[in-house]
Design a binder for these strands. Sequence first.
DNA 1: AAGTCGTGGTG
DNA 2: TCACCAAGACT
Length: 393
Amino acid sequence: MTKKAPKLTKIEEHNIAMWDEAKISRFRQTLLSWYDDSKRDLPWRHTSNPYYIWVSEIMLQQTQVDTVIPYYNRFVTTLPTVKDLAEASEDTLLKLWEGLGYYSRVRNMKVAANQIVAEHNGIFPDDFKDILSLKGIGPYTAGAVSSIAFNKVQPAVDGNVMRVLSRLFELDLDIGKPSNRLVFEEMIRILIDRERPGDFNQALMDLGATICTPKNYKPENSPVKEFNASFLNETWMKYPIKKSKKKVKEEDYIVLALSNNKGEYLFERRGSKGVLAGMWSFIMISKADLKEDEWKSFPSQTDGLSEPEMTRLYKKVKDEYGLTIELDNEMKGTYTHVFSRLKWYLNIYKGQIVNEHTMAKQTSYIHPDQFSETAFPVPTQKVWELINTITLF
DNA sequence: AAGTCGTGGTG
DNA sequence: TCACCAAGACT
């Protein structure tokens, strides 16, 4: 008989010193009583409706609590049920999401709402695998909704939890590496409170957000400092381990705020891929495309346009948009928009549409009176604000 | 697996 | 100013 080698758990693989049952029990009690005393009063903590919990969790992805609160309140008031969400138009949804960023989140929510209507009779599913199969719901959100709304014993490992565990156990694991998330999940499956899994998960996140913070971390203030190996061993400055990110790419654009004789402005719907996919923007022309080949790789950022560049600009607008335009001589101003890994230097011009031929791109004229009915990403809003700024000389 | 996707806040 | 961060998921 050949004996199969016992399969190592990830905790064993990484030589993590997991606590014994008595210590785990004390940790749960200490953490939960701190949570009962000190938890933050948040709108989504006043409900056990899984739909509301779901909305909050999607909004909270990579987004701060203070930013989410007003969006959350408006969203659930406007769309109180899954069915309302499923029946809402994309325009309605994007308007509710306007300025929150990561717009695919709300598009995915609509897909998921349709799944719930089609496959679960409009009732939010309580089975973990069913929840995980919903569009836009990954391992974290499935665990969060399962544990918080349905009291299921499931881990919800986010950035907070990885940071907290890294410090508690002196984990030499890169928390930026996706495959390492499974190690943290395995640890939480052991540590999580069997009676109050949702509160346990939220307690770890509250701890990470308010005390076990990335910066200005003071481990002596932690309610679980006696469990904290990195505090006891004075190695807490090392944790968590995280490799630095890459530099941002920079791009220069000419932005054209073009109006017609009705006072309407021309907008273009961005392509279905890439940054701000499907969102409405003023016409943007890459400045690199206006330069002589040899200068293309040198960003000029906020310089004005030279004569030959201006000539190429007019030709490009005519060729690609079928528009004859007349620009104001002066650049109205500049605006720099910073994304996660991208930086836009926008040179903003105002102009009139003299003649319109064929429109190849997906464009729309919108009157300023109607702006409140359309969802504009922040760069579009900033450009509009800037061209309406009165400049003093 | 590594890139990509927004925005606002902070030291 | 700039780098990093915030309740991640998708490709």
